[in-house]
Design a protein around this nucleic acid. Structure first.
Lengths: 328, 328
DNA sequence: ATGAAAGCGCTAACAC
DNA sequence: GTGTTAGCGCTTTCAT
C-alpha cells in the first residue's frame, strides 16, 4: 500500500505538494507539477489513508446511525435513505443495532465517540431522562433524532396523529362505529401518537371511545393475530380493526379467516406504514403510508447542515398518506 | 474531549502508563497506579481516540460490507447476522449499497480501502472478470464472499440447487407434472443454481423439461405477477408454479386470483427464501427457507478467522429447508 | 511555486 | 514499575 511519501518520491516533489494537488488546496501548484503528481498517483494506485487524514483534520466523514434492528424493514428503508443522502456528500455510516436495549444504546454511543464520528442519527428506543441522553450530549450540536419530539435534539418525524386519524376517519366514512385498535406498549411517541389519532377521530365523529376495543400488540403478525382473536371473541366484537402497523394487520386478517370472517365485508382492516408487501397481500391492505426513505434522507440532510454549521429548523414533520386498497 | 495526556496529568503518571493500563499490556503496572489511572479515566469520561489507535496499530477493527441494497430484506437479515457476530469481537461495519452497479462496486471498494477496513464481506452483483475483482484483490487474504463460488475468495453460500430440487420434488410428489418456473436473469449463480435444481428434479422424475414453462422475472411481486400471467394464459398452462423467490411467489398468487384460480387447488405455488411475511401470507406460502442470518454470522466468522490468520475452509455451504405451508 | 517540519492522539521500543 | 520518545500517514504553517 503506497503512501504519500511514495508518490512524492516518484513525482520528484515534496509530500506537501502532493497533498496540495490532492486536496485542490488554494495554495497554487504549477500545472506541470500537478500533472506529474497525478501521474504518480495513478501509477501507484495511491489512496490517501483516511485515518491519518481524519486525525489531522478532526473530521472523519462518517456518521453513526443508531437503530433498534436493521432487519426490520422500517429501519432498513430509513437507513437506505440516510446512506443515499450521505453518499452525495461523501459521508459514510457506521450502523449500530440496539434492540432498544438501554445498555446497548449507551455502548453504541460510546463506541461512536471513540470512532470520532462527525455526528449521529438516532432512531428508536428510549433516550429521555436516562443515561443515553447525557452520553448523546457529548455530540452536542451533531445529533438528529428520527421519530421523537420529546427530546432536546433536532427531530425528523412522521405526523402519526393525523395519519391515524385519517385511517379511522376512513373507516367511519365506510359506516363503521365499533372500531378496534391494536397498538403497542406506550414507551414510544409513535405508539401514543397513533393511539391519539385514533381517539381524536372517534371524538370528532361523536363515536364513543371504548377501552375494551384497544389492545397492545408487539408489532409482529403473531401478536396482531393474538390480539385480534381477543377482540373478535368478545361479545361486542368490532366490525373494523385499525392495526398500528402493517405486520399486525396481517395477523388481524389471518385471525379474521380463522373466525370465518370475510375481509373487508365482515371485518375491515387498516394498517400503518405501507411496507412493500402490503400491496400484494390478499386482500391488498389499506394502510397509512409512511415515507421512510424520506425520513432517512431528510435526517441525514439535517445532520449535514448541523455539521457544517448551518441552522435548520429543529423539527421537520413528514406527512403520511392514506392508501385505500381492498381490506376496507 | 479529553485525551490520554489529560488522564496522565490528572493521575500524575506518564501517558505510557495510561496506555498500559488501558490496554492491559503485559508490561507490569502496580495495582495502586492502575487504580489511580482508572479513576482519572472515569472522572474525565475519557475514551481513547480510535483513529489514532488504528493509525498506530494498523488495525481499525472495522470491516466493510458491500451489498446491493439494505432495504431488501434478504440483505438486511444477512447484515444483521454479520453485525451480531462482529459485535462479539469488537468489530464494526461500514455498509455500502451498490444496486449491483459496476461503478458503485468499484467506488465502494476504493472507499473501504481508504478507510483502512480490516477486511470486507461482499455479496451480490457481478465481480468476476471485471475491474472490481482486481480492486478487491487489494484486500488479499481478507475478503469473504456470500453466495458465489465462481470467484477466488472464501465463500459462504446456500445450497440453492438442492433447495430448488427439494421444492420441485415436493410438487411432483403432490402429483404435478407441468410445473412452471420463474427465475431471473442469469448473471447470478443463485439464479442459475435454482434453475438447475428445478431441471434436475424434473429429470430425476422423468418429467419432460419444457422451455415454455420457464420465465425470467425481476425478483419483485410485480414481475412475478406479470410472468405468471403469461404462464397461465398459454394453452398448456402449468398446474404448479415454482417462483425462485417469495416476492415473485406473492405476485404469482395474485395472478392466480386474477384468473379465478384457487391456490393450492387449481394452482400450487412454492417460493424460495422464506421471508418473514410468507408465513402470514394468504394462503401461507410453501417455500424453501434460506438461513440468511446464519449466512451473515458465518461469513463474519470466516472473515475474523482470515484476519487473525486462522485458516478456515474456503467454502461453507448452508443447507436450505423446505417449509410446507398452505399454498401447495 | 515549492519544501521542511510541527503536530493530530495514540502505542511500543527503549531507557532508567 | 515508570517515563521519554519515535513514528503511524497525513495537513498546514512558515520559510524560502
Amino acid at each position: 500500500m503506497s503512501k504519500i511519501h511514495d508518490v512524492a518520491k516518484r513525482a520528484n516533489v515534496s509530500i506537501a505538494t502532493v497533498s496540495r494537488v490532492l486536496n485542490s488546496s488554494d495554495h497554487k501548484v504549477s500545472a506541470k507539477t500537478a500533472e506529474k503528481v497525478r501521474q504518480a498517483v495513478e501509477e501507484l494506485d495511491y489512496r490517501p489513508n483516511a485515518l491519518a487524514r481524519a486525525l489531522q483534520l478532526n473530521r472523519t466523514m462518517t456518521v453513526g446511525v443508531i437503530i433498534p434492528d436493521i432487519s426490520n424493514h422500517y429501519y432498513a428503508e430509513i437507513v437506505r435513505g440516510i446512506q443515499d443522502e450521505a453518499d452525495k456528500e461523501g459521508y459514510n455510516i457506521i450502523l449500530q443495532n440496539t434492540d432498544r436495549s438501554q445498555k446497548r444504546i449507551v455502548r453504541s454511543i460510546n463506541l461512536l465517540r471513540e470512532k470520532m464520528v462527525d455526528g449521529v442519527i438516532f432512531s428508536g428506543g428510549i433516550i429521555n431522562g436516562y443515561e443515553p441522553l447525557s452520553v448523546l450530549n457529548e455530540f452536542r450540536e451533531r445529533v438528529v433524532v428520527i421519530g421523537r419530539h420529546d427530546v432536546n435534539f433536532p427531530a425528523v418525524m412522521v405526523d402519526n396523529i393525523s395519519g391515524a386519524s385519517q385511517a379511522v376517519q376512513h373507516l367511519i366514512d365506510r359506516g363503521h362505529t365499533r372500531i378496534g385498535f391494536i397498538g403497542w406498549a406506550n414507551d414510544s411517541t409513535t405508539a401514543t401518537d397513533r393511539l391519539s389519532g385514533y381517539k381524536s377521530a372517534l371524538a370528532q365523529n361523536r363515536c364513543r371511545f371504548d377501552q375494551d376495543l384497544v389492545r397492545e400488540g408487539r408489532l409482529t403478525p403473531e401478536s396482531g393475530f393474538v390480539e385480534a382473536q381477543k377482540l373478535l371473541s368478545g361479545d361486542k366484537a368490532p366490525t373494523a380493526i385499525f392495526a398500528a402497523n402493517d405486520q399486525m394487520a396481517y395477523g388481524v386478517i389471518n385471525a379474521a379467516m380463522e373466525f370465518g370472517l370475510k375481509v373487508p365485508d365482515d371485518l375491515a382492516v387498516v394498517g400503518f406504514d405501507d411496507i412493500p408487501l402490503s400491496s400484494f397481500f390478499v386482500p391488498p391492505l389499506t394502510t397509512v403510508g409512511v415515507p421512510m426513505f424520506s425520513l432517512g434522507t431528510s435526517s441525514m440532510r439535517a445532520l449535514i447542515n448541523l455539521i457544517s454549521g448551518k441552522i435548520s429548523s429543529r423539527i421537520k414533520l413528514h406527512k403520511t398518506k392514506l392508501i385505500v386498497r381492498k381490506s376496507s
